[in-house]
Design a protein around this nucleic acid. Sequence first.
RNA 1: GCUGAUAUGGCACAGUCGGUAGCGCACCUCAUUGGUAGUGAGGAGGUCACGGGUUCGAUUCCCGUUAUCAGCUCCA
Length: 656
Amino acid sequence: MKITLKDGSVKEYAQAMSVIDIANDISEGLGRAACAGEVNGEVVDLRTVIEEDSTLSILTFNDEAGKAAYRHTCSHVLAEAVKRLYPDAKLAIGPSIDTGFYYDFEHESFSREDLDKIEAEMKKVIKENAAIERFTMPREEAIKFMEEKGEPYKVELIRDLPEDAIISFYSQGDFVDLCAGPHLMKTGAIKAFKLISSSGAYWRGKSENQMLARIYGTAYTKKDELAAYLEHLEDIKKRDHNKLGREMEIFTTVDVIGQGLPLLMPNGVIMLQELQRWIEDEETKRGYVRTKTPLMAKSDLYKISGHWDHYKDGMFVLGDEEKDDEVYALRPMTCPFQYYVYKNSQKSYRDLPLRYGETSTLFRNEDSGEMHGLTRVRQFTISEGHLIVRPDQMVDEFKGCLALAKYCLETLGVESDVTYHLSKWDPDNKAKYIGEPEVWEETEQHIRDILNELNIPFTEDVGEAAFYGPKVDINAKNVYGKEDTMITIQWDALLAEQFDMYYIDQNGDKVRPYIIHRTSMGCYERTLAWLIEHYAGLFPTWLCAEQVRVLPISEKYADYAAKVEAELKDNGIRCTVDNRSEKIGFKIRDARLKRVPYLLVVGQKEEEEGKVSVRSRYLGDEGQKDLEVFIDDICKEIRKKEIREIQVEESEGNKN
RNA sequence: GCUGAUAUGGCACAGUCGGUAGCGCACCUCAUUGGUAGUGAGGAGGUCACGGGUUCGAUUCCCGUUAUCAGCUCCA
């Protein structure tokens, strides 16, 4: 039997060999580090016996699949420790995840003290270093086996497998778990782990099911790697927008105002206003016209749109249907409002495309547990728009929307954060969608072609479409790795029918237009949160509430500082003066902690020469370098930042 | 919505085994007038989230409400 290894070398064996034996044969170190194998492209257990010519890679912790096996084994160690300490706990599932692993138990929730106890027990399990062994049995026997062990969740899992399935188990000492593997050879192979947190989680991820107690943990092969990861967890808390945004007085919340209703503070509003002016002007350049439509409407409108039947729980309804003649509701979207702008007059094919934009405030009555900082709120504002187009214009207009979205991401300097998704319908769940299957397949193919043509990498997500059509979602992860949709562009060949929208074509016939629902920059609140985390509060100058702070050496130079300030303000720069009777070192420290991008120190020398000493994070060497320049020049320099360049380019330009 | 945790001056935290509270930073005043990350002295500021209960007495114990956090679910 010939085994071709990853590096191309070939090993010959006279008899069948397991993956771990081959790894040990190659080198003792590799045998120790091995977590799984990859045979002919398929990930397998270390115990898998190879009987014929194959290609083989030994997977270690440095391979994704190897890391998963390592951490999955640690989740079994966790399960064994929990069963030892709490024999009544029932086992559910315990997979590895990106950041480590978890295990779900039917048990009352675990406190931090419980986790500490469990950690200690896990260390014992690891120290005992029991051999992990794999065995199988037929389905019926496996069900009986798990019933006898009193593990109803395992029984349910096995029952979902095909009648003829061979069920695999892994044991370590007295502990046995239903598992497909792969696993390490011994529990002692786990070198560093930590239980991170515990929380509730629904059995099989369905909210109608029982809630189980989940324990999250992580595992590494080296103690210092674990320590580095734990430190990283602490570090990301510092850029969490929900903490940093409050600290920087960008937003706050008040208990008597309510959940999901953040108050934007003056610092946040400056950022918001900059974003709004910029995107509205940009859209105008790209042929958009603007609307301003009501924030509420009678229930009649939502009855036509279908929201009254399908989305009433998500809306804030004003009034009582039983008592009042008319009931109103705050709007959860802008679509029908802009449709009525379109319908105001009869449109010709010559009028299309019509691009309507609106800086649109929406209200959605999200469930109480969903609210989070600025990313999940009950009232928010989006750069919303609807394009009413002829079918033959659809592809070009869709491309235009993508181009605008890309422009926004690039200008904000966050394009590296995002992933693109083609959100498709679910052919197995037709009830959720309107329209014919052929139309869905066709429009999805159009979008696929557009994305490919623009060389945009994307994933295809089944069942993520809007009920009226497929869409492109542009998502970004927050500091904790949780993904949110930042921008969406939706293809809608169906709603025009529902709202009886039409245009008159060349032949004088009424024709249904297509509609694109889209955002350009997305939701203002969410974008703000994203920028806070992306830049850790060190925003590009054009978004900074305070762009320049003038720091007089002493009160003797207050007049000159005022003159500098006036000149900067004349140039449209947001500038303040620190006239406190503090030492210059103190003022610099304070301004830097407040993340002001430009500090202008002025004293006797500067006043005599009509100059300022600049200190800025853009000047390299972490802003330590001073630069004496004329006020005119610094205005020019800062105004340059008003061009929405990304930060890296700014600082590059600055060095010249 | 579900499971759990938390709530003490603007911020970050102590503390009270039940006898109405402190530190640091920030803030204010005075002195100091300075050259690139913390000058010194003094001062003010909290009915300990809110509402009930137990108690002679509750910030502390119990219950409820609200908000915040972690996770699940949800985001048409």
